[in-house]
Design a protein around this nucleic acid. Structure first.
Length: 611
RNA sequence: GCCUCAGUGGCUCAGCCGGUAGAGCGAUGCCUUGGUAAGGCAUAGGUCGGGGGUUCGAAUCCCCCCUGAGGCUCCA
């Protein structure tokens, strides 16, 4: 329900002629005038029909609240269809308006209601003080409160699935603490220690990202090193999915809520959307790439020969209006970047096959990023019943025990999904990759394909994010370093490290040699820089350590003469003597098959700025 | 969104039962010309998150707001 509230000196109206949906009225109600009134222009919407009582209640509370603040004498309820493009049925509207009137009257307010369904002339005089013009959107409570009991009975069941066997969660012999932590979290048993996740501090300390106070909360600024890492990860996912046949696309970030399919899909997301009103349209900012992908697929002629068909987009950005208290560091943001792959499959069999491929793809990202994922599979009871064997083999692809959540009924658009989570420093999961079988959207968005028999059918769509949001990946990498910090020096995987090799010339006379060396390595696609600042070697070593540089070379007279380099290897914390070619090989081994971008910072550290 | 705590030079923090701001790092300059995790000296740098109030006087006490963290809730 949409309402527009005007605190007026007076309002006058006069009925002119009936519409088809007009309510019957007495002569005395054919015209009227009310002094010092809160006029409530009201449009009842389709959505309100789901739970009319709750809308009535919420509207009455809101109106009474404003009424009490402004000191008007009357409330005038004025039916005004033009506030919404999605009106309820006239009967439902009449009933709801009538009930609001009755409800307010029961609160001892003077209430009048202007007739519904008539063409009317009216005149309103707005007082013009700050509270004299307000608008509100009244939402029904989420359908019904009564089925509480039912919901209780319909709780999900959790089991552990391993090697073709289902275990009760308490009877499973846990081998790893990460997995146990995920189980605890899913079962609501995680004890919070009240600490702050270390990645928040690290992202700022390492000059990767920071908060932007002039934006909304949960929107970050990225400094050159962080931006480089984002781009490398973006390249990585791009290669990963295109090598498997997906076609990259790019779609708009905002959508018109007038589009029925968009609106329904968006409504499911509830309050968590950024919306904006332009002159003629109400728009929403996307919270995933689904909207654009589905619209493309709906407009594409697809036959069974094209399937499975995958399109890919990196959403820079997706927007979710998370509650302010829920936004944390890189873990939960209002603006974030999500690789989003949508695969059109002909039928369930094909989807399951494709799902298997995507399990391997998601697991691969764990290896490449050196992150440990724990896995939870969520299925509806019906799906499990029909596809028990397939579900069990899906676990075998993971190769270690997983949690399985069995939902008694389908709640969402998917019937089967798999979430991969890295466990953070505080023992809580950070959800990263995900795969979902969507059985609902194709129909809603009008996506069809032509089968062998030349019939048009709605396909099944698999949503997949092979790494999860880029911000969370970076967050997980930082959390991991914090966990391991006690055992070994923290660092990123070499292919992600902004500086891969740093050269430390001992004295000024070694600078030329150092720059020369850097030039050679740069030509081999290695991100290298030179610490030419007039500091002691000890201090430069320390700085390189603080920046997590994987390889550090000190060059002086000895190196110049022998062309053998003393390389400090962070990973193993040892020093090794090698030639520059051997060092190149070593870095190339570390970064084999991974994307490369040049270092977008000056070669000499003395030229750099600190962010 | 709710409850609790916090916001002081670029960074990390001290000062907080009211009397006009302090350290370390960093930066800049000079000295040191060097061999593996902080060389020395000096200088600059602050509307004490923002607004209002109490007071002769507020970083300090009170109120409102903004931002951050933790918890709750939530994460389709």
């Amino acid at each position: 329900m949409r309402i527009l509230l005007i605190h007026s000196d007076y309002i006058k109206y006069k009925t002119k002629s009936k519409t088809k949906i007009a309510e019957e009225i007495d002569d005395e109600n054919k015209e009227g005038e009310f002094k010092n009134s809160l006029v409530v222009f009201t449009a009842v919407e389709k959505e309100d029909e789901k739970n009319p009582d709750s809308v009535v209640e919420n509207a009455a509370i809101e109106i009474a609240d404003i009424f009490s603040k402004i000191g008007a004498e009357n409330v005038v309820i004025y039916p005004y269809a033009h506030l919404s493009s999605s009106l309820s049925s006239p009967d439902a509207a009449k009933k709801i308006l009538h009930n609001i009137e009755a409800h307010l009257r029961a609160d001892d307010l003077n209430v009048a209601r202007v007739p519904f369904g008539w063409y009317k002339s009216f005149e309103v005089s707005c007082k013009g003080h700050p509270l004299s013009e307000l608008s509100r959107t009244i939402l029904p409570e989420k359908t019904d409160t009564q089925p509480n009991e039912e919901q209780h009975i319909q709780k999900s069941k959790f089991h552990i699935l391993n090697k073709g066997r289902l275990y009760k969660v308490d009877e499973f012999p846990y081998q790893t603490s990460d997995f146990e932590k995920l189980v605890d979290y899913e079962l609501d048993r995680t004890k919070s220690s009240g600490e702050e996740p270390p990645h928040v501090k690290l992202m700022k300390e390492k000059n990767l990202a920071g908060y932007e106070p002039s934006a909304d909360i949960g929107h970050l600024r990225w400094y050159p090193k962080g931006k480089l890492i984002r781009d490398l990860l973006a390249d990585y996912v791009y290669n990963l999915v295109t090598e498997r046949g997906a076609m990259p696309v790019e779609t708009p970030i905002m959508y018109d809520l007038e589009d029925e399919a968009i609106r329904v899909h968006a409504e499911k997301f509830g309050e968590r959307q950024y919306r904006m009103q332009t002159k003629n349209k109400e728009l929403m900012l996307r919270y995933a790439c689904c909207f654009g992908a589905f619209r493309i697929l709906a407009d594409t002629f697809i036959t069974w020969k094209n399937l499975p068909l995958a399109i890919y987009e990196l959403s820079t950005y997706s927007f979710r209006l998370e509650k302010s208290g829920e936004v944390v560091g890189l873990k939960r943001l209002r603006g974030f970047t999500m690789p989003d792959l949508h695969t059109v499959c002909a039928d369930m069999e094909q989807s399951m096959q494709e799902f298997n491929n995507q399990i391997s793809m998601c697991s691969q990202t764990g290896d490449d990023l050196k992150l440990n994922y724990e896995v939870i599979m969520r299925v509806t009871a019906d799906f499990l019943k029909e596809n028990r064997e397939w579900v069990f083999q899906a676990q075998s692809i993971i190769g270690k025990p997983i949690i399985i959540e069995i939902l008694p009924k389908r709640k969402h658009y998917w019937i089967c999904k798999m979430d991969f989570a890295a466990i953070d420093y505080l023992g809580r999961p950070m959800e990263n990759p995900t795969i979902q079988i969507d059985v609902e959207s194709a129909e809603r968005f009008g996506i069809t394909y032509i089968n062998h028999e030349e019939e048009g059918l709605n396909p099944i769509i698999i949503h997949c994010s092979p790494t999860g949001s880029i911000e969370r990946v970076i967050g997980s990498l930082l959390e991991k370093t914090a966990i391991k910090m006690a055992e070994k020096p923290p660092m990123f995987p070499v292919w992600i490290s902004p500086t891969q090799v740093r050269v430390l010339p001992i004295a000024e006379r070694h600078l030329e040699f150092a720059l020369h060396l850097a030039d050679d390595l740069m030509k081999q696609n290695i991100r290298i820089d030179v610490d030419d600042r007039p500091e002691t070697v000890g201090k430069k070593i320390r700085n390189a350590g603080n920046e997590w540089v994987p390889y550090v070379i000190v060059v002086g007279d000895k190196e110049f003469e022998s062309s053998q380099l003393m390389v400090n290897i962070r990973e193993s914390n040892e020093k090794m003597l090698m030639s520059s070619d051997e060092l190149i090989d070593l870095v190339h081994q570390d970064t084999y098959n991974m994307p490369f971008r040049k270092l977008p910072l000056s070669l000499k550290l003395s030229d750099r700025v600190n962010f």
